[in-house]
């Protein structure tokens, strides 16, 4: 085993071409997997020393968040929190205060967990990940990164260097809620993110609803978003949205929850998240 601290993206990509190489950003998933024996990397590539990876920068009215920025740092960034409160609260729900000191939004994405708290709100936000690899740079919508439990669409040698959250129009708001048995420290049993943009008349002009922990990957449910569009979240719109959410759920039964429970609760969370997002967007019922 070796530990490497590349100083350029190209160097990192070349290290990641080696057998059993793994990216280390916050390490809060990698070290757990190493401890359990699920992973035994030969090369650990610490990307925290690459330029820009620890920065949050403004770009085209939006935000570019370096892949090594911790959840705590995101939570302390006032402008980011004001623009994308749902994305930040999703990331901030990952683990404990201690984990927040290290865990990153990009790592949460690339770990490929269907229950990742940081991912649904990114999908609802239309976030785009920037990848570096042996063949250079490419941008990929976050929604296309996870492909199944523990799996991503990243090619060999590729890694995420940043995630871009677009500019916010006026009258927009997002929110993320998850269900866990305790108040903290659990993996989501179900999660729901809602991102709304309101028209000048206060009705929903655009809506994106994304779910976590109810399918092999976090996913957007376009039918759920469509159900909210044109509404002020009146009961029939909410009910249609909840139905669409539940229809889209394909969860598993496991130690954390049953199929019925996850499906039911995903609807409840989506309803509650929609109301929060609506209020954040300045909506009035």
């Amino acid at each position: 085993m070796r530990y490497a601290t590349p100083k350029t993206a190209a160097e990192a990509a070349s290290l990641l071409m080696e057998d059993a190489a793994r990216v280390l950003a916050g390490g809060t998933d990698l070290l757990v997997q190493m401890k359990s024996g699920r992973l035994a990397p030969e090369t650990i590539v610490d990307i925290k020393h690459l330029p820009g990876l620890r920065d949050i920068t403004r770009e085209d009215g939006g935000f570019r968040i370096g892949a090594a920025v911790s959840g705590a740092e995101m939570g302390e960034h006032t402008d980011l929190v004001a623009a994308w409160p749902g994305v930040v609260e999703g990331v901030n729900l990952i683990g404990s205060t201690q984990v927040q000191g290290r865990a990153t939004m990009a790592g949460n994405l690339c770990n490929g967990s269907p229950a990742a708290d940081g991912v649904p709100a990114q999908i609802a936000a239309g976030a785009v990940a920037r990848l570096e690899g042996p063949e250079g740079t490419r941008d990929v919508p976050v929604a296309e990164i996870p492909t199944g439990p523990g799996k991503t669409s990243l090619k060999r040698g590729e890694f995420v260097t940043s995630i871009f959250l677009p500019a916010r129009p006026e009258r927009s708001g997002d929110a993320y809620l998850r269900f866990i048995p305790r108040t903290e420290m659990d993996i989501a049993v179900a999660g729901a993110a809602v991102n709304l943009v309101l028209g000048a008349d206060g009705t929903v002009a655009e809506a994106r609803v994304a779910l976590g922990a109810v399918a092999p990957t976090a996913m957007e449910v376009p039918e759920a978003g469509a159900a909210l569009t044109g509404s002020k979240l009146e009961d029939p719109a909410i009910e249609a949205m909840v139905d669409a959410v539940r229809a889209a759920c394909k969860p598993i039964d496991d130690k954390r929850g049953t199929v019925e429970f996850r499906t039911h609760v995903a609807g409840v969370l989506a309803k509650r998240a929609a109301r929060i997002a609506f209020a954040r967007a300045g909506g009035q019922a």
């Binding site: 305790r182 108040t183 903290e184 420290m185 659990d186 993996i187 130690k255």
Partner: peptide
């Protein structure tokens, strides 16, 4: 045993 760890053997935390 499916939950041999503090992640899924859920003892109360302070905020509970």
């Amino acid at each position: 045993l499916q939950n041999p760890g503090f992640l899924d053997y859920r003892v109360p935390v302070a905020s509970d």
